[in-house]
């Protein structure tokens, strides 16, 4: 460690269910350089200060969506948040809000995985297609309709940002709705009626009160708030017009 080595305090929310009654904070002094991310800071802690610290990470370049944490109270990917932006103040690192903590910074994401499965996140063909019929063709407009919603990396920052999900965890939530919308507006897909049942349900889009923080924190510039609000309109149209044109989605 050279003399002008900068040292930043990282406050970490710790929780080991086998010995802790409740989460508590622990402060570490971490030497850092200007190119170090918060993720590298917690990796330093694990490597040199306390090997029992648990957190998820993989790609280090905002692609895998594993390293989401609350950094000074904001849902962020720790790999693209830099220690230099907090120095000389202390930086606070906690597990993502609104999820049960499994251990330290690791959350239990089972609830989200169930939601992800429930939206059927794959193309449901309108009709069976043979190989001989060749590939699907799409115009640039047809691609534009869903492309931004397909960038979701399931990092769950939007769920940590959503006050309504925080109050009611059965709400399908921003990312799952954005992905649902991604398939519903895909010209190759024929599964909209099935997915609309979820949108229209009590777990669906009407839990949203248009806060919009989900879209602000998204590291991939997906706009889940937009998907949710487009589907409020879709759900309302389906609710009032289902008797005029009953074709699925209505119960």
């Amino acid at each position: 460690m050279s003399e002008n080595q900068k040292v930043i305090e990282i406050e970490v929310l710790r929780y080991h269910p086998e010995k802790d009654k409740e989460p508590h904070k622990q402060v570490f002094e971490v030497p850092f350089t200007d190119d170090m991310s918060v993720l590298q800071g917690v990796q330093y802690i694990k490597d040199y200060l306390d090997g029992s610290l648990s957190f998820r990470w993989s790609c280090r370049m905002a692609i895998c969506g594993s390293c989401g944490m609350m950094i000074n109270g904001e849902p962020s990917l720790s790999c693209q948040t830099f220690l230099r932006d907090y120095y000389p103040a202390r930086v606070r690192v906690e597990a993502l809000s609104h999820f049960p903590i499994e251990r330290d910074l690791v959350i239990n994401m089972e609830g989200f995985i169930e939601k992800l499965e429930s939206i059927q996140p794959y193309i449901i063909p309108k009709e069976p297609r043979t190989l001989a019929q060749g590939e699907y063709l799409q115009t640039p407009e047809q691609l534009n309709a869903y492309e931004q919603f397909s960038s979701c990396i399931n990092c769950l920052l939007c769920y940590a940002a959503c006050p309504q999900f925080g109050l009611n965890s059965s709400f399908i939530g921003p990312a799952a709705t954005a992905l649902l919308h991604r398939y519903n507006v895909d010209s190759r897909d024929g599964g909209k009626a099935e997915r609309m049942e979820l949108i229209n349900s009590e777990e669906g889009v009407f839990n949203c009160t248009a806060v919009g923080y989900c879209s602000e924190v998204c590291p991939k510039h997906v706009d889940p708030a937009n998907a949710v609000n487009q589907n409020k309109t879709n759900a309302a149209a389906d609710y009032f017009l289902r008797f005029l044109a009953p074709k699925g989605g209505a119960k």
């Binding site: 609830g111 429930s118 229209n200 349900s201 669906g204 009407f206 759900a235 309302a236 609710y239 209505a250």
Partner: peptide, 17 residues
Amino acid sequence: MKPTTLKRSNAPIFWAL
């Protein structure tokens, strides 16, 4: 969250108003 237990929300009435 099981699709079989989904109940249609009556929120559109209030949301429209």
